[in-house]
Amino acid sequence: MTPLIAFGEALVDMLSNRLDGAADDLPETFTPYAGGAPANVAVACARLGLPSRFLGMVGDDRFGDFLVEELARHGVSVENICRTREARTALAFVSRDAHGERRFDFYRPPAADLLYRLEHLPTGVFAEPAILHLCSNSLTDEAIAETTLSIADIARRGGTLISVDANLRTNLWPDNRVDIGRVTALLDHAHLLKLSRDELELLRGDHDVDSWLQWRLAAGVRMIVITDGAAPVIVHRLGKVIDVIPPDVTAVDTTAGGDAFVGGLLAQLAEHDVNAATLGDWCQDEARLRHAVELACRCGAFAVTRPGAYSALPTRDDLDAMY
């Protein structure tokens, strides 16, 4: 089974006890949950039985301790996590509406995850077959963006299968302005690309959807997955498109839904030992691809029915018990 390597931010989601617009006089409190999109994917894969490790940096503080402990508790290898006293572990205060949709207030920058550099990358980390997962939140600062794109270059040259989830958080970018060129550069390193419908609309700019998607496929992306909440998931690969209807559930907290989906999909690729060279052919078997996306949808549906991130991610037994 091909192992997963996730790189990027691990942070603490401070989840509000109160839904937006709720009419009560109780003081608002926040419960800490371990999170961060690439860290969530690492946990999602580990909970599905995939060997998984996380690369990144957290502060030498109590929240950094909390994240390392939680990652390890859920089966993720933490031996390559770096610690620093130069910045604190990032926090995200998360408020929810009645449908579980979130609003984020980030305490980042400064933050420890932004200080990771190529010198911290373990020697030979991509020497063996692996899946590397990345997100755009490690592009918001010029120095960490250079590190992220360099890691993607090294991994791609070594034949590693690269998964990218755009996972855009506009309020993490200076002046709330996403550097679309920088994000697109990362997307075009991917073999597997996951976008939400809203992210697609932002990133394509004035270009029509079909042209923009074809450019990504021409750049070497072998599969593009577009999610849109409860609407069908659309999967584009060379010359073909399929759609998959996700399960109908009542969302409580959508924090890790997309990450659970990605973890479920990557677990299917890992089980079949799919690599960068074989992903394109693997995607052409529609029945197999549809089954993989359906399982990923079930992972996402399970996660949004529970609060928090790591603890909301399903195991195999959880998926078997859904129906």
Rank of each mutant, 00 (worst) to 15 (best):
E286A: 10
R288N: 10
A301P: 05
D141L: 08
D281S: 08
R169D: 11
E119Q: 05
D179Y: 02
I242S: 15
R156Y: 04
G300D: 06
V262Y: 01
A98N: 11
Q268V: 12
S150L: 05
D281Y: 08
D97I: 04
W215V: 15
A303E: 02
D281I: 13
D13E: 13
G100A: 11
G264M: 00
L192I: 11
L19Q: 08
R85Q: 11
D198I: 07
F302P: 08
R156V: 12
L289V: 10
N275V: 13
G308N: 01
G257C: 02
N137R: 00
E146Y: 04
V41G: 07
L118R: 00
M223I: 10
A230P: 12
R169N: 04
R62P: 11
D141R: 04
L71T: 14
V274C: 04
H291Y: 15
E201W: 09
V221F: 08
G159A: 14
H191F: 02
E101L: 08
F30N: 08
L91P: 01
F63P: 11
A166E: 01
V43S: 04
T250Q: 04
R306I: 03
N171I: 06
V244H: 00
L26M: 06
P32L: 10
E199I: 03
R117K: 12
G56D: 09
L265Y: 01
A256W: 00
M322Y: 11
D320H: 15
W173S: 00
G220K: 02
C45L: 12
L217I: 13
V244K: 02
V241A: 07
F54G: 01
A166I: 02
S95N: 12
A152D: 09
R288E: 13
D113F: 01
A296I: 09
G229N: 03
G8N: 02
P246S: 03
L168D: 06
L203Y: 03
Y323K: 15
Y116Q: 01
E201S: 14
R88V: 07
V76S: 05
E142T: 07
E69M: 06
T160L: 02
A46E: 15
L200I: 03
E28W: 01
V293H: 00
V41D: 09
C299A: 14
L114G: 03
I245K: 09
R288F: 06
A143I: 15
M1V: 10
A155Y: 01
